[in-house]
Design a protein around this nucleic acid. Structure first.
Length: 490
DNA sequence: AACGGAATGC
DNA sequence: GCATTCCGTT
């Protein structure tokens, strides 16, 4: 249709307002802006956008288990999506078809038994946009892995606490009481990084509404002010023949429309922030901090509800190395299933949250003995069909995969902390005193409430690094070098 | 409502 | 690649 589609504008977004002068982010940092594969916004980005906006809480909102959201008004969401995509005939049926494709991609999954309720697989979402975490599976990091001892699957290399600490010296504790590493029941492999606790998607940012279950009556963002003082999503704001010029791309420039991913990025402790001289690292994050996030952060910091009964081995992630070259091995589908089953076995699913949507995994098995097609695919292990999606953009072996509704207990509040910590150590901790980062091995077992602040060192311990990754290198150079390392080792 | 195959478009 | 559209099935 010939409408002035929102994606016609700003195809080359200007430098985001939160841009930090002097720090050049690698290209991949902007993947959400320009990609994947298309310049157009992706549905899940859009969903996240809506979720973060207070004004759409009546339309779509976080609800239930962590990462879970409910489309309260399917028609309206479809309408908004249609507007954004200039698809005047969009409806929920079509939109939901698109959402269903995310099942295979493991970006989303359905919360069974709850109408219009889906759940984000945040670890997936994060990794789609932050190959940094793929980098975490690089040989460089694997070399530091003292835990898997080669016992992990060839394509499955858990990140160790040490590794993580090297990467994110200020990575905070998960606010919900789980440690970043869930001590698994199966020995050495038990220590796996909970990538889903990473801060990248969150918050802290002026405008990210956190998924519920962490913050109780969590603060919503202030209503977003469109540059033109016009909210294109408001009903009747325009006709389909008069689509407003909205910022295009999967994400808006942050100055225009703070979005979880980009703002998350801005808060993201840079992969090499730990390699930076404190001043440099601080400078980067500090300038990003922007304003307005404090309330959210404070809430995240102060209002940490105890979340006990953490599944013993929940969303623990094993980073696939297939991207690094071991392509010939097991297909993602198979890996996913294998890990899904592992998750099924290992998950306690004891959170007592979002129980309505238990995805047929865990203690009770398949509720009602009924299996959805996706479950058939994911859990059966037989008659595995080709994965038409075989999402090439990411190869992640994620135990938190579609198998459970208790997966991905990502921690948004922790993310805020990470941002503050990573960016401005001297400013973080509105009310806590920074203490040295304890050895990860000393972290309390999963389930023990663990103050975030205990993971926020006043001064990040300089990680041991390969000589080549000297702090004297520029950020870009280091990134480049790491990339080279990856290639070399793959 | 939810699902996924298939064809199609961009 | 990522939907969109259509549609039969559960």
């Amino acid at each position: 249709m010939d409408c002035n589609c929102v994606s016609d504008l700003l195809l080359t977004p200007p430098v985001p307002a939160l841009w930090t002068p002097g720090i050049a982010f690698p290209d991949w940092a902007y993947k959400p802006e320009s990609s994947p594969g298309s310049r157009q916004i992706q549905l899940w980005h859009f969903i996240l956008e809506l979720l973060q906006k207070e004004e759409y809480q009546g339309v779509i909102a976080w609800q239930g288990d962590y990462g879970e959201f409910v489309i309260k008004d399917p028609d309206e969401v479809a309408r908004l999506w249609g507007i954004r995509k200039c698809k005047p005939h969009m409806n929920y049926d079509k939109l939901s078809r698109a959402l269903r494709y995310y099942y295979n991609k493991r970006i989303l999954h359905k919360t069974k038994g709850k109408r219009f309720t889906y759940k984000f697989n945040f670890s997936k979402v994060v990794l789609v946009n932050y190959p940094l975490l793929d980098m975490a599976s690089s040989p460089f990091l694997l070399a530091q892995n003292h835990f898997n001892g080669g016992s992990a699957a060839p394509d499955c290399s858990p990140v160790t606490p040490e590794t993580l600490q090297s990467l994110f010296p200020r990575l905070p504790e998960s606010a919900r009481g789980a440690s970043l590493f869930e001590r698994g029941p199966q020995g050495p492999e038990g220590d796996k990084l909970r990538l889903d606790t990473f801060p990248f998607l969150s918050s802290g940012a002026p405008c990210y509404s956190k998924p519920p279950s962490l913050l109780g009556p969590y603060p919503r963002n202030p209503p977003f002010d469109y540059p033109w003082g016009f909210n294109p999503y408001l009903p009747g704001a325009f006709s389909l023949n008069n689509c407003p010029k909205l910022p295009p791309g999967s994400l808006y420039p942050s100055h225009f429309y703070p979005n979880p991913l980009q703002s998350g990025l801005s808060q993201l402790p840079h992969p090499f922030s730990s390699l930076l001289p404190p001043s440099e690292a601080g400078e980067r994050g500090g300038a990003q901090a922007g304003g307005g996030a404090n309330g959210t952060v404070a809430a995240a910091v102060g209002g940490v509800p105890p979340r006990l009964c953490i599944p013993p081995y929940p969303g623990a992630l094993s980073l696939s190395r297939t991207e690094l070259g071991s392509v010939g091995g097991v297909g993602e589908r198979e890996r996913g299933e294998a890990h899904g089953q592992a998750a099924s076995l290992g998950l306690g699913l004891g959170l007592g949250l979002g129980l309505g949507g238990l995805g047929g995994v865990g203690l009770g098995g398949v509720p009602g003995g009924r299996q959805s097609p996706s479950e058939r695919r994911g859990g059966g292990g037989v008659g595995v069909k080709q994965d038409p999606e075989s999402d090439s953009e990411l190869e992640i072996t994620d135990l938190s995969d579609c198998s459970s509704d208790n997966d991905n207990e990502a921690d948004f509040s922790a993310l805020s902390k990470a941002r503050l910590a990573g960016g401005r150590p001297q400013v973080l901790e509105p009310k806590s005193t920074a203490v040295p980062l304890p050895p990860l091995s000393s972290l309390p077992p999963a389930g023990s409430p663990h103050p975030i602040k205990s993971l926020l060192p006043a001064t990040p311990p300089p990680p041991s690094l390969p000589p080549s990754l000297s702090p004297s290198l520029s950020l870009v150079d280091r990134h480049r070098e790491t990339e080279a390392l990856k290639l070399t080792h793959s």
